Computed example of a mutant assay.
Amino acid sequence: MKTLHALDRKHLPLVLFVSLLGTLAASLAQGQWPDYTQLAATLDQPLSRLRWIVGDISEVAFYKHELPALGLLLGACLAHVAHMYGYRWQGFAICYGSGLWPWVFTSSLLGLLLSHAFWGWTLASGTWQPTFVAFVSLPAAMVLLYGAGWRVTLSGALLGALLVTPASLLMVNYLCYPLQLPVVVGNVGGMALASLVAFMLCRRFPSWVRHSHKPVVREPVAAQPDYGVVWTLRRVLADFSEAPFFGNELASLGLLLGVFLAYMLAPAAPAYGSLLLLPMVAGQALASLVGVLFWRHQWQARGWYPTYIPIVSIVPAAVLAHGGSWQVVVGSAVFGALVAPPLAVAITQRLPAYMHGYIGNVLSMAVSTLGIVPLVGLLAGGAA
């Protein structure tokens, strides 16, 4: 019985991969997808609500669609299996080589489902609501900081639903909407403030996050990176899945293939029906490329640097606010790549050790978006 249990647990990622592949195939067989407006207008229907929930998984990249969400999870599952078996084609080891991806995913997914259970009623207002925030914030950060185990996993999920989601809801509805600020400011601002409170609570009540075991991690086979052209392109690709703490090329490839497929099937479905997906993705890739090239010395010295930040904040917020002109795409990408990563590191270095450094990243997103998006609008307006 013990051997069978160990075998089932060992092959759980593969089972998940096959199940998700079947789900994707069934979705493709339907042939037609509603656009974003239709989806948002029919959230009282079970299928539309399910699509919204699954779409929350890709919300952090501003894609909001079930196909990129499923692609992200398929790629991540494959990357985890490759990491566990030490395959060379695994790319950058998922979840920073911690071996914690199953726990990270479980805690994030539970946090997302609990958020919808507690706060899904806010969608009845008819306006967009940040129901996705628990999937890419505190639950995963707690698992990576405190380790594996159901105590940590469930604590992270519950605190994410009880603290992060309502904090973001309050900031979006009572700050961003009235002042006409980019909603990403409220999303990440809520993540930061709620996570500060959560980590202080975990320090005060350490039994919440006490764990009893660590995962078995197989060390990557890859040699010391040369930080050349191939590494640069791989790093740019991996940045697309950095926000959910995956940071892996296979996960990012699944995300991008999924969103391009969604765009081909129904152009008005992903990216909130804006029809701006292509300039958005171009700006996101350019932001990462500029950041990786400009901050290469930081990557070499530190082993990791938050060049992903503009991908999930400044660039998509600027494109949605000011359109997909080349001035907006290039301006938001370059300014975001140069300003946001060092600001994040400066904030993170001032955090206490019992807090996860992602708080510095999301605070940088909020501050940088507030400063850069209006600037890009002025520059693009002047150029026009």
Score class of each variant (00 low, 15 high):
351 L>Y: 11
116 H>V: 08
266 A>R: 13
115 S>H: 07
240 F>C: 03
63 Y>I: 14
145 L>I: 04
160 G>H: 08
249 E>G: 10
17 F>L: 15
335 F>Y: 12
147 G>E: 04
220 P>G: 00
63 Y>K: 00
142 M>S: 05
64 K>L: 13
161 A>K: 09
108 S>V: 03
252 S>C: 03
12 L>D: 14
250 L>K: 13
163 L>E: 08
35 D>M: 02
313 S>D: 05
170 L>W: 12
289 L>F: 11
110 L>W: 11
226 D>C: 11
33 W>I: 09
247 G>K: 07
229 V>C: 03
373 V>H: 07
338 L>H: 15
50 L>T: 11
194 A>I: 11
48 S>F: 14
377 G>I: 09
258 G>H: 04
98 S>V: 10
209 V>G: 02
79 A>N: 08
331 G>T: 10
86 G>A: 03
111 G>I: 15
203 R>L: 10
190 G>H: 10
241 S>L: 06
353 A>I: 05
294 F>I: 03
319 V>L: 10
63 Y>Q: 03
220 P>R: 00
358 Y>W: 07
345 V>G: 02
27 S>F: 07
293 L>C: 15
313 S>L: 13
375 L>S: 08
167 A>M: 09
203 R>D: 14
155 S>M: 12
15 V>W: 05
355 M>Q: 10
124 A>F: 08
88 R>Q: 11
27 S>P: 01
124 A>Y: 12
114 L>H: 01
214 K>L: 08
191 M>P: 02
264 M>D: 02
98 S>R: 14
202 C>M: 10
156 G>S: 08
132 F>E: 01
327 Q>T: 08
365 M>I: 05
240 F>E: 05
180 Q>G: 01
215 P>G: 14
142 M>N: 01
51 R>G: 14
300 Q>V: 15
86 G>M: 06
173 N>Y: 11
371 G>L: 13
229 V>R: 13
320 L>N: 01
352 P>D: 12
87 Y>M: 15
45 Q>M: 05
54 V>I: 15
151 R>C: 03
179 L>N: 10
211 H>K: 01
38 Q>K: 04
185 V>R: 01
238 A>D: 03
40 A>C: 02
239 D>W: 14
219 E>H: 08
203 R>W: 10
101 W>V: 08
113 L>C: 02
357 G>Q: 12
132 F>Y: 13
49 R>V: 08
109 L>H: 00
275 L>K: 00
247 G>I: 06
309 I>F: 11
157 A>Y: 07
200 M>F: 07
186 G>N: 06
12 L>T: 14
231 W>G: 00
184 V>D: 03
210 R>T: 13
298 Q>L: 11
316 P>D: 00
296 R>L: 14
57 I>Y: 03
136 V>W: 09
298 Q>K: 15
244 P>Y: 13
155 S>G: 01
39 L>H: 06
96 Y>C: 01
56 D>N: 09
62 F>C: 01
301 A>P: 11
228 G>Q: 06
354 Y>F: 12
347 I>D: 10
12 L>E: 15
187 N>G: 09
135 F>G: 02
384 A>H: 07
193 L>C: 07
31 G>Q: 00
25 A>V: 12
261 L>S: 00
342 P>K: 13
75 G>Q: 04
210 R>S: 07
